[in-house]
Amino acid sequence: MSYREIEHTADWALEVTAPDEASLLTEAARGMYALAGTRLAPVPSLSRRLELSAPDLEGLLVRFLEELLYLSESEGAAFDAFSLRVEFAGDEWHLHADLGGAPIEGMNKEIKAVTWHNLRVRRTPRGLHTVLVFDV
């Protein structure tokens, strides 16, 4: 289970591998926060519950990360504890997420958006694999 930044001329690209869907989303979130240089304040933690759906796993991944970006900007909140359940039911992928985190103390960079550029979650012998490109 891991993420790593890979080369992209203008924006940021993140390669993520994970054994299952829930950990793929978790690693992608951790990677996105790391790219932005997000630092959490050492104060009592805050929590959020998210319920999201999308027609495909790629769409669910983008929605989840977009939600985290929105919470960063609108509430100044970021998360480092993830309890995620991902399931496919009724022709859609569903995410139930319990997040624990804290107010943001500082960030190095602003991520404008999570893009769909060449986005595809592949099943490989090592688990799920994807590359995300962020507009910065």
């Binding site: 992209h8 001329t9 203008a10 924006d11 893009t115 769909w116 550029h117 507009d135």
Partner: peptide, 9 residues
């Protein structure tokens, strides 16, 4: 020009 996402910059 340079690489963007989808459409080139």
């Amino acid at each position: 020009m340079h690489q963007g996402y989808g459409f080139p910059i």
